[in-house]
Each structure stands twice: as structure tokens, then as C-alpha cells.
């Protein structure tokens, strides 16, 4: 989901390059990612006046490790927070609106924290915010799982080009891009290194 060009409006997207393309530019390094996550953690606590009733739901693949990192940072600031009881995983594959336009997708796991999500403050965590369709699917999935009091959205990168009226509450970095470009988020947990890369497209 790193580049997220899952918009059915663009069926003719260019074939995805494998591995690291020669034109890739690093926009965020490990330190910038760490700083952005620390800032988002503080913003979450500030906006919600503490960590009471808070649930972080990561959207697989890369939203999940980001949610775990945010939970660890929340626990550093607020001593009462148990990072393990805060994080869940929300798979949205079966709620996507573009299933007919792609080969079969493997379904990931949905795991809710022990307290469930009813009446709680749910923060959705994803790596890249692009068309907004992933988040629409996530909102549908949440609807079937319970009724949170508030739903907020945290994204490491907001690359613009929204196709739905969806906006993030917490953003690591606003990244103006052209639709021809591809934004990739690499994380140590899934890819062995922390970086945000842009490749393709003439700027």
C-alpha cells in the first residue's frame, strides 16, 4: 500500500518497477521519520487531552508497524499507557472498491485491542495518504466492527490527489507530487530500512 495508486479511475497506471529504481529520491530519512512520529504522538495526546480511550488501528502492511511505533512513543510520554493494549490491526482488503481491477489480493488480519472500539477514540494509521479510497474502505470496515466515539486519521506522508472528501488529522510530511510519480515508504520492520522515496515522473 506504500504508493497506494489504487485508484480505479486510473486503470492504465505504469508497470511498477521492481526493487529500487535508479531515479529514486529520498525525501525522508530515518531521523526525519522518527521526528515526525514523535511529533504526531504529541499531537495525538494534545488533541485528545491524554491517552484515555485511545486506540491506534494500523492498516496493513506498513500502517501496522507505524501504529506500534506511535504507541511506544505515547507510552514514553504518558506513563499510564500500555502500548500493547493500544494497538490493533485493521485489514481493509474485503472493503476495497477496486477488487475487480486487480489480481486477487491476500487478506490480512484484523485484530482489535482487548477493549474493542465501541465508544473509544480510534486513530487510523497508514503510511501514505493518496486518493483516500483506502481510508473510505477503512471507515466501512470500522462500521462493521463497532461504533467508535471519534475516528481520526494519521498518515506518515500526504501526497495529495484526493478523490474523496477525506482529510488527515495528523501528517508526518506533506509531499506535493505528480500523479506519475510513485511514493514508497520503507520501514525497518518490513523492508529492513527506514526511508520515504519518490521515483518516476519528470518533475
Amino acid at each position: 500500500m506504500s504508493s497506494g495508486p489504487a485508484a480505479p479511475a486510473q486503470p492504465s497506471e505504469p508497470p511498477e518497477p521492481t526493487g529500487s529504481a535508479p531515479t529514486a529520491t529520498e525525501v525522508l530519512g530515518p531521523h526525519e521519520i522518527a521526528r515526525a512520529l514523535t511529533r504526531i504522538a504529541h499531537e495525538i495526546l494534545e488533541r485528545n487531552k491524554g491517552a484515555a480511550d485511545l486506540v491506534l488501528l494500523g492498516i496493513p502492511t506498513r500502517g501496522l508497524p507505524l501504529a506500534h511505533r506511535l504507541a511506544a512513543r505515547l507510552a514514553e510520554v504518558e506513563a499510564t499507557v500500555d502500548p500493547a493494549a493500544l494497538v490493533g490491526s485493521l485489514d481493509i482488503t474485503m472493503y476495497r472498491d477496486d477488487l475487480r481491477h486487480h489480481p486477487t489480493r491476500t487478506i490480512g488480519a484484523t485484530v482489535l485491542p482487548p477493549g474493542g472500539i465501541d465508544g473509544r477514540v480510534v486513530v487510523l494509521v497508514d503510511d501514505v495518504l493518496f486518493s483516500g479510497r483506502t481510508i473510505r474502505a477503512a471507515l466501512d470496515a470500522l462500521n462493521d466492527l463497532g461504533r467508535p466515539r471519534v475516528v481520526q486519521l494519521a498518515a506518515l506522508v500526504d501526497r495529495g490527489h484526493r478523490e474523496l472528501p477525506i482529510r488527515p488529522d495528523y501528517v508526518g510530511k506533506n509531499l506535493p507530487t505528480s500523479t506519475a510519480e510513485r511514493v514508497r515508504v520503507l520501514l525497518t520492520e518490513t523492508d529492513g530500512a527506514d526511508a520515504v522515496l519518490i521515483d518516476g515522473g519528470a518533475r
Binding site: R100, H102, P103, T104
Partner: peptide, 19 residues
């Protein structure tokens, strides 16, 4: 049913999207 129907039609194979 999911693996047979929730995919490109027709002629796709069982493979994960590179995303």
C-alpha cells in the same frame, strides 16, 4: 468464492498484487 471472484476478469492467475 473470494479467490475466484474478487479479481480481474477474465484470465487472471492466483497471484498477489505487487501493490
Amino acid at each position: 468464492l473470494y479467490l475466484l471472484l474478487a479479481q480481474e476478469t477474465p484470465g487472471s492467475t492466483l497471484q498477489e498484487d505487487a501493490r
